[in-house]
Design a protein around this nucleic acid. Structure first.
Lengths: 318, 318
DNA sequence: TTAGTTTACGGCGACCGTAAACATA
DNA sequence: TATGTTTACGGTCGCCGTAAACTAA
């Protein structure tokens, strides 16, 4: 029997990605009932069971793995074809799903994204703001901005900026509580912590700029949130000490709204990457956005290794 | 807009192959009206005109070329996926469209195809018998058997047998008209000729087995046909001299129904090839059929260079 | 009990074929 | 003139959503 419906293939891919028929149905904007029937029909056409299912779950069969692998490449080709046709028209069109963290988005990206949207009237932007790690393939994201080192080999990445965690607080907080001269003194400060998967991040690692000493301090504080921008706001309001990527607090350090603590010490490396699903074809609009962001980071000097105001004293790790 | 219907893609491929919307519609078993609407919808989805059409003809646009190229690869992948799934099941299933010439089919292939079909109950065979050159891609043939050297680079081929044209006649014809001792004497014989594109083939080229001499004679005769098997029948009935591939007359030479004329001379080379459209994936059933035919040719000794009964005296061309 | 898959059923929409118009080779 | 594409129109089939049943987590 011959294949007829492309959405049936998209459904199978969705099921393979999410492991859920309901989730895949939602992705295609159909009901689970329709999805069930559709998948059944596809399997009938192929004469092969692609997913073993119970009333409560589904898992892919070996035949399903095989088929999905081919189908994915086929759909990628069709996407690429459409992309090529669109690029014939000079201006960029289409939607971009961008995933980024709450603070980075608000403090840095929003203005730059405005510029990009103004420059490309045909482009639509769909922001997925979250401080929990999003699955680029599962959530159908075109582009995710991520701090830290990468792991997933199914992804392709491009480095946008290089940064480290820096420690800072508002001037009035410093006036009230003084400056610590060593990380260990943070223990007697009010520290603002981020919550990840329900657990507060209270271990803050440090290394001397000259590399002569490292230490990790356990901090305390009355305020914590799973939204990094809220934590940032608390710091601005003088509620405590903040430890986060220099990129996010770059503007506030420059304006004096925040002052840097422990300038002789540096936090862990947090390079910023643009991450894309490793399909063969990246739409022109996505490439353009990545270029745009990279250019903006370059202009602000954040693309270079510059973890501390004292600049050149930094030791570069091998 | 997202692609939905795979048959729309097949239609576009058909139009690219045949240059005709009506022909492509027939291929998909729909009416030209439906095909027209379908193609229009595809173009609307893509936002691009794939074919420039008048009320009487159509031709592909550059954008169409581009799209069709990707779509073809995508559909090939899906075909391959289905093939892989089927091969999981041990026995072969599916249809094979085989194109071959009328005489080769009747004199040689039919029995062997019977064997193949008996050995593989799940396989269906669709013969396209024609003595005019069929376009493998245009006519959606899985496998074509062709005499002579190949040209089209879009095809993949495998040599099944090596043969030359031989000249022969029935014993009673020889009794009545005698044996020619030189090709030039064919001019006073009744020669049976094949009609190709409305023109009789009356130039018969020869070379001496030792390579010392070549000549091309212009022959005459009262009977000609565009069906090579008819011509063959006439020869058996004693109506004249036949010049055709040794493979086709192999059995009749062996049985004595035909006798070879001019044994010191050989006709042009006519290797027999199995030709397949150069898609990445060749279905297992087609591969099996090619193997089957190759094996049968090997068993009869027709795979070797053996243009004359005197065997080793043949000179091999560089 | 919950949540996700499956079945049943009714209605709407899409697509096809018939038929006729149209234009070009 | 004849052939191949397009438009118009009516009917049918398929597919989706609603709702409920089912079952494993």
């Amino acid at each position: 029997m011959k294949l007829e419906n492309i959405d049936e293939l998209r459904l199978a891919l969705g099921c393979a990605d999410t492991g859920s028929l309901t989730a895949s149905a939602a992705r295609l904007h159909i009901t689970p009932a329709a999805a069930s029937a559709s998948l059944k029909k596809l399997e009938a056409r192929l004469g092969v069971r692609l997913f073993e299912r119970s009333t409560r779950s589904m898992r892919i069969t070996p035949a399903g793995e095989l088929f999905v692998d081919y189908a994915r490449r086929a759909l990628d080709l069709l996407d690429e074809a459409q992309g090529q046709l669109q690029e014939g028209g000079s201006q960029l069109v289409g939607a971009i799903r961008l995933a980024a963290s709450s603070d980075l988005t608000r403090r840095v990206l929003l203005d730059w994204l405005d510029d990009f949207l103004a420059a490309h009237p045909g482009v639509e932007l769909q922001l997925a703001v979250s401080d929990t790690l999003t699955d680029v393939v599962r959530d159908q994201v075109d582009l995710a901005l991520r701090y830290g080192e990468l792991d997933d080999s199914r992804l392709v990445a491009r480095r946008l900026a290089t940064s480290r965690r820096v420690t800072c607080a508002s001037p009035d907080y410093v006036a009230r509580h003084g400056l610590p001269s060593h990380p260990s003194e943070l223990a007697r400060h009010e520290c603002l912590s981020f919550v990840i998967r329900g657990r507060r991040v209270l271990q803050w690692p440090y290394a001397r700029n000259d590399g002569s000493e490292t230490c990790t301090v356990r901090v305390h504080g009355r305020r914590s949130a799973d939204d990094a921008e809220i934590v940032h706001r608390w710091a601005l309001a003088g509620h405590g000490v903040l430890c986060k990527s220099e990129i996010d607090v770059h503007a506030h350090l420059a304006s004096g709204a925040l002052v840097r603590l422990l300038p002789d010490w540096q936090g862990i490396r947090l390079p910023l990457h643009a991450v894309m699903p490793s399909r063969r074809f990246v739409p022109a609009r996505v490439r353009a956005l990545v270029d745009h962001l990279a250019e903006r980071f370059r202009r602000t000097g954040m693309d270079l290794e510059a973890g501390t105001p004292s600049g050149p004293s930094l030791t570069s790790e091998p």
